[in-house]
Design a protein around this nucleic acid. Structure first.
Lengths: 139, 139
DNA sequence: GCTAATTCCTACTTAACTGCTAGGAATTAT
DNA sequence: ATAATTCCTAGCAGTTAAGTAGGAATTAGC
């Protein structure tokens, strides 16, 4: 029942980028330093975010990353899914619709809770944007 | 972002016990067989549930487990917490109130989402009882 | 009392995942 | 050229998940 630090770090980094949106690219090392993260590790996360189309990297001196879209149009859900894969609370309440509940398909009582849970998590993730987070705290 | 199979299995087993509530104790082997789980593994889960006071075991022939309370008064949250510990979405939104967000305490933008998430998860878990699940599916 | 059924308890194992490090290739501003 | 940077792959130590194994303690029924 946890967001791994992948998701946690990723969202924090994206908030930093969101604050810099409109200016030039931010270098990895700067973001990592500001957030107190291992830059090597963060690099891997940024690659995943880039492949998901959420950021764009420019190489060479004065390179770095920029958001590809306005912070108000990027949800935390997009970031988390890019880093951790689809929100799957339990096998029997999968996001993609695979019907692999327990052993015999579908009539699993516990399924009800996991589905409710998935829905409420999804709702929170998809209704919160980077811009919402920027308005709030410091980092 | 997953309930481990610990939680999943545990809830399923508790639903079986809930259906048998009022009758005699159910043996581990029966529950495991009905749910298609490893009985050795389920045994460990039942121990945790017993220590949390949610079930009571009776040893010897014709022994087994019974719920200690009416299914309508046992929430899924109690079961999940007994098996997986407190719901902690991210370090900076801890349930017990430890102030260990990121590096510098408390002013972490991303915190907002994790707190919202924790609240909505908690709400679902604590408002769904075993009786609710019994009314629903098959297993 | 014996036996079979059962919970109780501990220790181990295997596989996967997390968080991180290392090292280098490719690119680009100055 | 050089320094700064992203890009990419591989590996590693620690932790957790999921399950196995084996045995001690207890109890119902014969």
């Amino acid at each position: 029942m946890k967001v791994s630090s992948k998701g946690h770090y990723g969202v924090r980094a994206m908030v930093v980028l969101a604050r810099a949106y409109g200016g030039g690219p931010l270098a990895l090392s700067g973001i990592a330093a500001r957030e107190g993260l291992s830059s090597g590790y963060l690099e891997q996360l940024m690659m995943q975010l880039r492949r998901a189309g959420l950021v764009e990297g420019s190489r060479g001196a004065h390179g770095g990353y920029v958001l590809t879209e306005d912070p108000s149009r990027v949800t935390v859900g997009q970031v988390v899914r890019a880093l951790e894969g689809p929100v799957e609370v339990a096998a029997c309440a999968s996001e993609v619709g695979e019907p692999n509940c327990c052993e015999k398909e579908s009539t699993c009582a516990s399924r009800l809770v996991w589905q409710r849970m998935k829905e409420s998590i999804t709702q929170v993730l998809d209704s919160t944007t980077l811009a919402d987070l920027c308005r709030n705290g410091n980092s």
